[in-house]
Nucleic acid binder design. Sequence first.
DNA 1: AAGTGGTCTAGACCACTCT
DNA 2: GAGTGGTCTAGACCACTTG
Lengths: 248, 248
Amino acid sequence: MTANRPRLSLVQPEPGQSRYGALAAALRQRVIDGEWPVGTALPAETNLAAEHGVALGTMRRALELLVEQGLIERQHGRGTFVRGGLSGAPMLRFFRFGAGDGEVPQSRILARQSVVASADVARRLGIARGEPVLRLQRLRSLGGQPRLFEEIWLPLPLFDTLVGLALADWGDLLYPFFVERCGVAVTRATDEVGFAPLTAPQARALELSAGHPGVTVTRQAYDLAGRCVELRVTRGDAFAFHYSVTIT
Amino acid sequence: MTANRPRLSLVQPEPGQSRYGALAAALRQRVIDGEWPVGTALPAETNLAAEHGVALGTMRRALELLVEQGLIERQHGRGTFVRGGLSGAPMLRFFRFGAGDGEVPQSRILARQSVVASADVARRLGIARGEPVLRLQRLRSLGGQPRLFEEIWLPLPLFDTLVGLALADWGDLLYPFFVERCGVAVTRATDEVGFAPLTAPQARALELSAGHPGVTVTRQAYDLAGRCVELRVTRGDAFAFHYSVTIT
DNA sequence: AAGTGGTCTAGACCACTCT
DNA sequence: GAGTGGTCTAGACCACTTG
């Protein structure tokens, strides 16, 4: 009988790269390939070190790197786990609305269409112009009061399941919903914040007057492999906007 | 003759604290106490380790902590240096002005008064209400065009030298100026961003019309020891506002 | 009690900078 | 070549979690 002992898989750092850097890259790839799904535990560090034929300290250094990058999470006495994607309602960190502080907003899809990507949308999604995308309009409310108006573009082969799904089955938070229905985990996003008066349709959706001062947050969201999987433009009342930064 | 050999100074970690954590705290205190001024080099890690009677790896861990905290900077082959305070024109990262991109704005002090701190100013500066402060109004321009209007409060025993200093001698950047004239280095700051229409005087200073959409950035700046050494409220044109964040 | 990650040691060797 | 920080090793022991 053949023992199922772990293979020795050596990692060769590229010239100028450290061994722990190469190890981190290799482990990252194995996570991307689905070897350890979100929420599951990696092998113990001693086993990983033995498997790759490096000292324990070197493997620890590699794992620390992945922790810094937000890919994994370590818990003393329990293990090393693959982190899930972004989950909260991260858009709300920009806004302060009177009552509902920390409360999850209700979501309502106002429109859904399959369209072809315009030049601008294609550029931001990193796809070719004319590729099919799913376009959504969405209104988020707190305490019955409309607060955020969103336009969302999703690349289409990837999100096919959402094209026909009954709108009642959609969740109030999109990112956990993407994981559940499409297996897409958002792990990183960039937000760009700007100021502009609201157009008439935007203002109407938010129950404000046309030309009211508005904040625009343009988000590009990426999955583990670095593909852009969502483009979202959110608009809200500029007077409800607030944001804190610490600089060092 | 007594050799000037370095004393062995043991650091006792508090219960529940790691040794490298205690070491980092001890080194931080020595920096605050002025043992190694801004820009100078700390002793080599081997010497520091020997001086504190710990292994090299432990000392390295402590130094890594201080690097993460932004206190020091390490350069391969050169040494470990105490980081200077914030220096650039960090306010400008919020704004995009047509021509002068990356250019240092001209500054003009419009008003300077010694006053007593109001309740709000005192709270934000962390001093008692009624304490003396220096209040400034300052206009920053790019290419001759006024761009930012600032109100600044400085706690007064600390900034006494600035009370009578000829306004012509002030620099275009305040933080390097604070170091030079008052020995105060700003090492950390928090910014809070919000929108509000400009009041008539604010708009006048910026050559805009009263009620024009404005951005307000409220900054509290801190020195090495964690004291708040500046409160600054900056106002500018909302249409020039832009900001990027990456979330993970 | 067994298994996990966290701390600490004592060394070797390498890569970079300055003179 | 001398001095610095960066990498890597091989081990010991501790602290936390779980069955």
